[in-house]
Design a protein around this nucleic acid. Structure first.
Lengths: 218, 218
DNA sequence: GTCAATATTTTTGTATACAAGAATGATGGT
DNA sequence: ACCATCATTCTTGTATACAAAAATATTGAC
């Protein structure tokens, strides 16, 4: 299953945007990049269109592709939507979740607990992701699931660093527990609001993180 | 502001998929279509990729582009998500909506009423759309707004016919009124659940429409 | 006649070539 | 010196050409 060059290039460009090689507003020169990747402009253009879809790049007619990092306002908006989507997943999952999924959820949660005790943010991060993805799936709505996963991925680079904040992992854990309990009780509204709060707080943390960075830079 | 050919072609292909010229599963031959549109394969391929992004077409490696109409199950899922997104817009808008927007909403609603009395589904449809789009915007979250508009558009062809169902316009009107009242009171939860119900019922109507079509075909 | 292996034809993916619009620099007038 | 207009250059958008993979047809063995 040989991958298309366009896909490989899209991934690599995505990485370079996230790691800061390309900053916000930079123009992505087709010819330059094509040479750099050792391909022609054709697959490179396809890659750019793909990035435009995920919102990382803005394609302007007859002018080219520009890196488009979401600003603080848009990020807050995205976090808000993420919180609401997770809340919806939770509300639906509370009514539809299977017993085995509840077991898996409990397992993921326990591994989270272990990661907290080991003070291992990376382990926590991956188990946390598993926890949330189970809930997306158990919403019983695969369209919702894919849309939620998509936004989750888009926010990933902005959320990861937050776990390093003092006390965040412990707090996150306790939120997980109340989410799990609500799902076990089948309490749709409780699950929804617990998840909403759990994610919304990330947006707020992000916000304060941003402003500290801002003021530190002055 | 000369449009790109790829965009024009994408629109036209989209139309042909909706109007049934291309059925589910059909392979879209690049060469044939390119000749038909009088362009080369390059812009046509770009158009196909665009359609793939909106989910109308599935691109399979080294095999081509295939029309991919959502089946009944996926449609129900999409309507469910639409209902939840509108509910979220409503919940946020209840807290954030401006007075002038409330006036505009009321105006749109009155025009809806007039359309009901004139038994004019087309007029109702367009005013109804205005009504909903005001709410999306007044959520105060432009990311949410664009995402919601996007899904709205994707469901448009499946929703339009429903207004012809007996009594649907009248019922829809009364739902509008309770939505408007909830927003005027600033009652977030009432607005959310009113909108959720208002949209969810479209999914259900669609479902029954589908099953009657199914049984009629047997 | 059926199946398998190979040859041929299509068709996709990529490279290159060309056309048209935008950005940039030069020229000339005031 | 400054601004407007025009020419040049650069870049995007499109067409054509080529390569590689898949689909199809053909041939031959059993």
């Amino acid at each position: 299953m040989e991958k298309r060059r366009a896909d490989i290039i899209a991934e690599q460009l995505e990485e370079r945007i996230f790691d800061g090689t390309f900053a916000d507003g930079d123009r992505l020169d087709e010819a330059r990049l094509a040479e750099q990747f050792g391909v022609s402009r054709t697959p490179l253009r396809e890659a750019l269109q793909r990035l435009a879809r995920s919102g990382l790049v803005e394609l302007i007619q007859r002018r080219g592709a520009f890196v488009r990092q979401p600003g603080p306002v848009e990020l807050l908006e995205m976090f808000e939507v993420m919180a609401e989507l997770e809340a919806v997943c939770g509300r639906l999952a509370a009514k539809r979740i299977s017993d085995t999924a509840l077991v898996h959820l409990d397992e993921a949660n326990q591994k989270c607990q272990a990661a907290v005790e080991a003070r291992d943010p990376d382990a926590y991060y991956s188990e946390n992701e598993r926890f949330h993805k189970i809930i997306y799936k158990e919403s019983g709505n695969s369209f919702l699931e894919t849309e939620t996963v998509l936004l989750h991925r888009r926010l990933q680079p902005f959320r990861r660093q937050q776990l390093r904040l003092r006390g965040r992992m412990v707090q996150s854990m306790s939120e997980h527990t109340s989410i799990l309990e609500a799902l076990e009780r089948g309490d749709a509204e409780a699950a929804a609001s617990a998840l909403r709060g759990h994610v919304a707080i990330q947006g707020e943390k992000f916000h304060s993180l941003m402003s500290t960075l801002k003021s530190a830079a002055e």
